[in-house]
Computed example of a mutant assay.
Amino acid sequence: MAEDFHKPTQFSGSKFESFEGGQDPATISRVAHETAHALLARVRSDPDPEVVERLVAYTDEHGIDAVAELWSRATPRSLPGALWRIYLVRLLIRQDPEGTAFLYQRGTEVTVAIDPVIAGAAAPTGPAEIIVLADQILRGIFTGDFAVALDRAAAFCRVIASGCASVADDLDATELAASGVSRASELTTRALRFSTTAQEFGSCARLWRSDSLD
């Protein structure tokens, strides 16, 4: 990747799927797949710790724009699509670690699934722990079992979705003001978004295990 990119920019949850790429879909798709495969193959064949850490922290220094330009238009169930969503989820966590940790902790309290175990965050999960989890998942993409990293990302998203839905239910039950209704609606939308992303991560993990993730 080139070095001359924008500095970090704030990226709100409402823009989760709003990036648009260039004008030629075929070119966008080809470049996305070629860069994703080349990057992953190169790093996983020689996982130099310094290179891996630079990749993990890439958007902290350069912002999300460069990653989005390469991969945001890729189909969700593809290698570039998976990489884009991993980076995006990490960025959303780092932009609001307190809020994310709160929703994640709530999710662990209300879910009956083993997703908190699969995601692997330290418990209780505060802002520091949620940031560590985000870095662990992204690092696992480059140095560990790729499918396991995607499974962890999927589990994280499901826990967050459960937390969002639970807090939204609380607001529906206790908040009568218009602002409360609006907040509940926003959280419900976020829950759906994270649930969808979890499904996409899960599909990519299955495709990777069958050597079918393009």
Rank of each mutant, 00 (worst) to 15 (best):
Q105M: 13
W84V: 01
I118Q: 06
A57Q: 13
L55Y: 08
P49M: 04
R42Q: 12
R106I: 15
R73L: 00
V67D: 00
D65V: 09
E53N: 10
A68F: 05
A101H: 09
A113K: 14
G99M: 03
R77I: 05
I118R: 12
A82G: 12
S78Q: 03
L91P: 00
G99Y: 10
V117S: 08
Q105T: 15
Q105C: 08
L91R: 15
A119C: 03
L39Y: 08
A122C: 06
A113C: 11
R77H: 09
V52A: 01
E61I: 04
F102H: 15
F102P: 00
A68W: 00
D48H: 10
T100A: 11
V117Q: 12
E109K: 13
A68K: 04
L55R: 01
T111Y: 10
G63H: 03
P49R: 04
D46H: 14
G63Q: 04
T59I: 04
Q95E: 15
G120V: 02
T100D: 07
A122S: 12
A66I: 01
P116I: 03
V110G: 14
I64Y: 15
Y58E: 08
A122P: 02
V112L: 14
L91D: 12
R42V: 03
T111V: 10
R44P: 02
Q105A: 15
P116C: 04
Y104D: 00
W84G: 05
P76A: 11
A121P: 05
L79R: 08
E50I: 05
T111Q: 08
V43H: 05
G63K: 01
L88T: 07
A66T: 05
A74T: 01
D48M: 03
H37L: 12
R54G: 01
L40R: 07
I86S: 10
I118S: 07
Y58C: 06
S45Y: 01
S72V: 01
R54D: 11
R106S: 14
T100C: 14
L55D: 02
L79W: 08
E69Y: 08
T108Q: 09
V67L: 12
V56A: 01
W71C: 06
A123K: 14
G81M: 03
L92T: 03
E53S: 13
A113I: 04
T75N: 07
R54Q: 12
R73Q: 13
